[in-house]
């Protein structure tokens, strides 16, 4: 029953309007994430950023305007360790911004360090995924997030 809701959600019109933003500096990991998304059957537009600063430039510019003017939604996947601006900083900025704070955020971590994960949750991230991205776990997390987003009504 839960699975049905989630899968339906990814096919729903409201989800198709969502752009997926990935901030990941490692090409190998980025490729794995893209493949995993593809396997889930998600057809949404995907933007990849090389680091946090690039992602933040987009979020604070284009994405912000899109959200304010025509309600365009986003889903943000943030690697924690990135040059120039790390994922935790991007998360902090997103959650402090009145327009952007409703954007669901998935944190990508390489460790299970409870302090790091704890900090991300405290800042308002919705879920975290361990790298390298395991397909089963990734699908499962996306399903959970899908159901969550359906209720949040972004």
């Amino acid at each position: 029953m839960r699975e049905n809701i989630a899968i339906n959600f990814f096919n729903m019109e409201s989800f198709k309007k969502i752009d997926i933003l990935i901030a990941e500096d490692d090409d190998g990991h980025a490729e794995l994430i893209l493949e995993a998304l593809e396997e889930t059957g998600i057809k949404n537009p995907i933007h990849r950023f090389k680091d946090g600063e690039e992602a933040w430039e987009f979020l604070s510019g284009t994405a912000k305007i899109e959200m304010e003017t025509n309600g365009q939604g986003y889903l943000l996947l943030l690697d924690i360790n990135m040059p120039r601006m790390d994922g935790v900083e991007v998360l902090k900025r997103v959650k402090q911004n009145q327009t952007l704070k409703t954007v669901p955020v998935i944190m990508l971590t390489t460790t299970d360090d409870p302090r790091e994960v704890d900090q991300c949750y405290k800042l308002g991230c919705n879920v975290y995924i361990n790298k390298p991205v395991d397909f089963d776990k990734f699908t499962d997390t996306l399903k959970k997030l899908g159901l969550f987003m359906q209720i949040v009504k972004i």
Binding site: K95, K101, P104, C125, V127, L145, I151, K153
Partner: peptide
């Protein structure tokens, strides 16, 4: 109707 704060964790 129901709603969840987007700032809450999924789990």
């Amino acid at each position: 109707e129901a709603s969840v704060d987007p700032q809450l964790p999924v789990e």
